[in-house]
Amino acid sequence: MENDRGPTEETAREDKRPGSTEQSGEIHWTLHVDGSAGKTGRGAGVVLHGPEGFTLEYPLRLNFKASNNEAEYEALLAGLSLAAELSAGKLKVYSDSQLVVNQVNGAYEAKGPRMKRYLQKVKEELQRMGEVEILQVPRDMNNRADALSKMASEETHDFGTVLTEILSHPSIDEKQSCVFPFTKQWNSVST
């Protein structure tokens, strides 16, 4: 699914005008995902750009033990699920996780039972979608998804009016994860 040219700064920037057309004239959706795991908590960030300027930003707080790579997979699963529910056509996914991108694209082997289950879940999600290209980008081209993942990982963060999902269990332990539009329990804190 990966092309040899790799993403350019123009094609990978999160602040790029969404819904741009490529040479074929088809509208692409773009998805930026990032995961974060540290001493203060774990989180995932998703930024989906669609046609006509549509943008959805989505932070997820992970209330379970997860490595950084597992948080990266949670972000990817949430983003793919969201894009599928919104019937995104051609989708370009940008992640700064070398490991996750290369496992999904088949260049790296997933090791360990949890990583294998995450990879399998992503492949199942990709089966229900149209054309998807997953590319690795430098961290500085994934700033907004990174900020959302870090914000979600802070247990004391006040989200204001931002809708935030809190996952109690890994997506690989559930039959279905991140069902949209907004059918799960949502936490919205107003200031």
Rank of each mutant, 00 (worst) to 15 (best):
Ser149Ile: 05
Pro18Tyr: 01
Phe159Lys: 07
Gly53Ser: 04
Ala88Leu: 03
Lys116Ser: 05
Arg42Gly: 01
Leu163Val: 12
Val100Arg: 00
Ala145Arg: 13
Thr156Ile: 13
Tyr58Thr: 05
Leu48Met: 15
Glu72Met: 06
Leu167Asp: 03
Asn143Cys: 08
Val104Phe: 00
Ala152Trp: 01
His28Tyr: 15
Val189Ala: 11
Lys65Met: 10
Gln98Thr: 06
Glu124Trp: 00
Glu109His: 13
Thr11Ile: 14
Glu72Phe: 06
Gln98Ala: 04
Thr55Gln: 14
Phe182Met: 09
Gly35His: 01
Phe64Gln: 04
Ala152Thr: 10
Thr164Ile: 10
Asp158Trp: 11
Tyr58Ser: 06
Gly160His: 07
His169Arg: 07
Ala145Phe: 08
Ser97Trp: 05
Thr11Gly: 04
Arg139Tyr: 08
Thr156Leu: 14
Val100Tyr: 00
Lys121Ser: 03
Lys39Trp: 12
Leu48Ala: 11
Ala107Gly: 11
Gly38Met: 13
Arg139Asn: 12
Thr40Cys: 09
Glu131Asp: 11
Glu2Ile: 10
Pro138Tyr: 02
His169Met: 07
Gln120Asn: 06
Leu48His: 14
Val122Cys: 00
Thr164Leu: 12
Arg17His: 06
His157Gln: 08
Glu70Ile: 10
Tyr118Val: 05
Asn3Thr: 12
Tyr73Cys: 03
Pro181Asp: 08
Tyr73His: 04
Ser171Met: 04
Val132Ala: 04
Ala75Lys: 02
Ala110Gln: 01
Ala37Val: 08
Val101Cys: 09
Val137Cys: 06
Glu10Met: 13
Tyr118Trp: 07
Ser171Gln: 00
Val179Pro: 09
Glu174Gly: 00
Leu99Gly: 02
Val100Asp: 02
Met141Arg: 06
Ala83Ser: 15
Ser81His: 09
Arg117Thr: 04
Glu2Cys: 09
Pro170Ile: 00
Glu133Phe: 02
Asp34Leu: 09
Arg13Lys: 14
Ala75Gln: 01
Pro18Ile: 03
Ala107His: 15
Leu82Ser: 01
Thr164Glu: 01
Phe180Asn: 06
Ala110Ser: 08
Asp34Pro: 11
Gly89Asn: 11
Ser36Ala: 14
Ala83Val: 07
Leu126Trp: 00
Glu10Gln: 14
Lys150Ser: 07
Ile27Arg: 14
Met1Ile: 04
Asp15Arg: 13
Leu76His: 01
Val47Asn: 11
Ala83Ile: 08
Gln23Tyr: 14
Val137Met: 05
Met141Asp: 03
Leu76Arg: 01
Gly112Tyr: 10
Lys121Gln: 05
Met141Lys: 07
Tyr108Asp: 10
Gly45Ile: 04
Leu62Tyr: 06
Leu86Phe: 11
Pro138Leu: 02
